[in-house]
Amino acid sequence: MNYSLKPLNEQVIVITGASSGIGLATAKAAAAKGATVILVARNREALEDIEQQIRNEGGKAFHCVADVGHQEEVQWIVDVAQQECGGFDTWVNNAGLSIYGRLEEVTDEDNRRLFDTNFWGLVYGSLAAAKHLRTKGGAIINVGSEVSDVAVPLQGMYAASKHAVKGFTDALRIELMEDKAPVSVTLIKPAGINTPFPEHAKNYTDKALTLPAPVYTPEEVASAILHAAEHPYRDLMVGGGAKAMSALNKRFPGLLDWISSKVMSKEQLRDEAPVNKEGSLHAPSTDGEVHGNYKGYVMKTSLYTRAKTHPVATGVLTVAASAAVFALLNNSRKNGKNKGPH
């Protein structure tokens, strides 16, 4: 397929879930690179503040208050992009929430609300974007998760929604290819990311929520998203941890089930009392922050993802690093010989 994706500084990029976390990191990075961003979320106050921050730093931004779980509100996003910018070039479906709780505990109301945002919001956004981009070309970038490939306890319905996101995204890509539409469709699958994700989740447990290691910085996901806005990719995993989990699940699914049953629930809980058990599932709560409060070590970069997106540069760095290590070892050997017994 012949895609024609513009440089970032010529693009208008729609980003849902732009009021915090990955969406906010992506909006800031895109604006810094010269793109015009359309910020989408439910929190008007946060969006207005973020828009002003970007403009104060010389960027170009507009906002649209919308709940992507309602199809008519997704049309508002298209209308804002048309009115303010004459359309858009890339649409990033990033809005998403989670529920921490065992499957038999979570209510139908909460599960349906989760799917309204995570799945139907992405479906409505993807179809609206495909209609707009079908003739002019562009990119649709859907944010899934490492749990698009691997199920986990305590976030079972979240994992189910991300499995659904993967199935829909793959089917949409194939249908657009069948129609020879010049639209790149990419699924981004991050590992655990240090965003306010646990704080925004609905919490059915009696403990504070966290993420299983390894955890990466949201700027690494933003980098992958913006790379996909300029270069067509089928899918991109962010974090070697995500790739390892996916590969292990494909080769040894029973083993991974057993490991998860032993450790994964404990890895998602902190031995502290929860602060806000309702989270942002049914209404926006605290927004405006890129990073969360993860207590462990946060990986600043993912060599695996960099190798996928910049294979030549990563190869050069790997060779250079190997050469440096070889030189150090060689020098150590020489020094050792020169320091023989006197």
Rank of each mutant, 00 (worst) to 15 (best):
D79Y: 00
I54L: 13
D110F: 02
E48M: 13
G86L: 05
A41P: 03
A41G: 12
V40Y: 02
N43V: 06
I99V: 15
E51A: 02
E109F: 11
D110E: 12
N93Q: 06
A30Y: 08
V80K: 07
H70N: 12
I50V: 13
T26R: 08
S98H: 09
A31I: 00
D79V: 09
L39T: 03
I54T: 00
N43W: 06
V92C: 06
V106S: 02
R112Q: 14
E73Y: 07
A66I: 08
D89P: 01
K33Q: 15
V78K: 12
A61F: 01
G59D: 01
S98P: 00
H70E: 12
T36K: 15
G87K: 01
V40L: 05
A35R: 10
K28C: 04
E51N: 03
Q71W: 12
W91R: 06
R113T: 15
N111Q: 13
E73V: 06
N94F: 05
A41N: 05
E48P: 00
D108Y: 08
G58R: 01
W91E: 09
Q52W: 05
R113K: 15
V78D: 11
I54K: 00
G96M: 10
I54A: 00
G59W: 00
A95D: 09
Q53W: 03
E109T: 14
T36C: 11
V68M: 09
A31M: 02
Q53N: 11
E109Q: 13
I77R: 01
R113N: 12
R113V: 10
T36N: 11
C85K: 08
V40K: 04
A29S: 14
I99G: 08
Q53D: 15
E109W: 04
Q82S: 08
G58N: 03
V65I: 12
Q71L: 06
W91H: 08
V65M: 05
G87M: 04
Q82C: 03
E45F: 03
E105D: 15
C85F: 06
I50K: 03
A35L: 11
A61N: 02
R55I: 06
W76T: 15
R44H: 09
W91D: 12
L103M: 13
G58V: 02
I54F: 03
A32E: 13
D67C: 05
V80D: 03
G69T: 06
G59M: 01
N111C: 13
Q52S: 14
L39K: 03
R113I: 10
V68C: 11
E48A: 15
G34W: 11
G69Y: 08
G34K: 04
V68S: 07
I77F: 00
E57D: 14
D89C: 02
R44K: 14
D49I: 07
L39E: 04
R55D: 01
H70C: 00
E105G: 06
Q52E: 14
E84R: 13
K28Y: 13
R55P: 00
